[in-house]
Nucleic acid binder design. Structure first.
Lengths: 146, 146
DNA sequence: GTGTTTGCAAAGTGTTTGCAATTTA
DNA sequence: TAAATTGCAAACACTTTGCAAACAC
């Protein structure tokens, strides 16, 4: 009940719920991230997108924002490549395909894969998340089958 | 049949098999890695270890060596933390526990966990590896059970 | 001897930080 | 206005690179 058609409202509410002051930059970034169909973003990618959309925001602010969003539970950080962080707008449990050669990263729904026999965690710790990545490589033309 | 008791021989053979010229540094690093009980190493860790053992080797060479060993299949690179690479001397399939708070990384044998229902890989690709990491956090003193 | 490997230090990533200027409530 | 946020540029951590000297075969 209200202007549900305006994506802005959506982003605004996300920020409010997360107790993040809805500044111009945060709002704009939230809109790009949550309403532009993108799901896996690096800071640089998001920054570029912002630039393309004439959103004035510095890379440092993009980093800050990504971390604030992650801390607030709006994003999930994916560790898939040393030296580069991906942020996933899908915070529900799920898994990934990743092809290093071309940077392709795609989702696998949690219910598509069963993980059984999770060993008991070391004492003094508890399970925080289960990261499952199927790493791919592009087919070569043909390979000897030895 | 030969001096099997000398760890040196072991490392030497590994290098020879991998077609890597057994230089003083490579030999020494191989010995540290494969015969000192260590399994998960960062470049800096290995470099420190080398220093402690009075092995003169530069950090650049440690990096080069780790990559050469990885390319040769002697090591497996683990992506677990953006901005830091771990190298695993266990090249057989297996999984990991990881606790970011203290950097603890430990093995889970492949047969301890079953992964079922691996979705078919995107066309034009093939599965290279399955990375499964159980991320842990240290227990807090007590947590509300809501 | 010849080609490989090493070490250094410099350059390169991606990311974080300090602080003044700006913006929000 | 007071407190939070931003932008910039400098600082960072980790990794790679270029090239001359050292080494292995």
């Amino acid at each position: 009940m209200s202007t549900a058609a305006r994506p802005y409202t959506n982003a605004l509410n996300r920020l409010k719920d997360a107790n993040l002051r809805p500044t111009r930059q945060r709002l704009a970034l939230a809109r790009l991230m949550f309403e532009d169909g993108h799901r896996h973003l690096t800071a640089e990618q998001l920054h570029s997108e912002a630039m393309s959309n004439s959103i004035k925001v510095s890379l440092a602010t993009v980093y800050n924002t990504l971390h604030q969003f992650t801390d607030a539970g709006l994003l999930h950080e994916i560790v898939i490549d040393s030296g580069r962080s991906y942020f996933d707008t899908n915070t529900a449990p799920h898994y990934h395909f990743y092809c290093e050669e071309d940077g392709m990263l795609s989702d696998i729904p949690a219910d598509a894969v069963q993980i059984e026999g999770i060993p008991s965690v070391p004492s003094g710790t508890q399970l925080q998340s289960v990261d499952l990545v199927f790493r791919l490589k592009r087919d070569s033309v043909a390979r000897d089958a030895a």
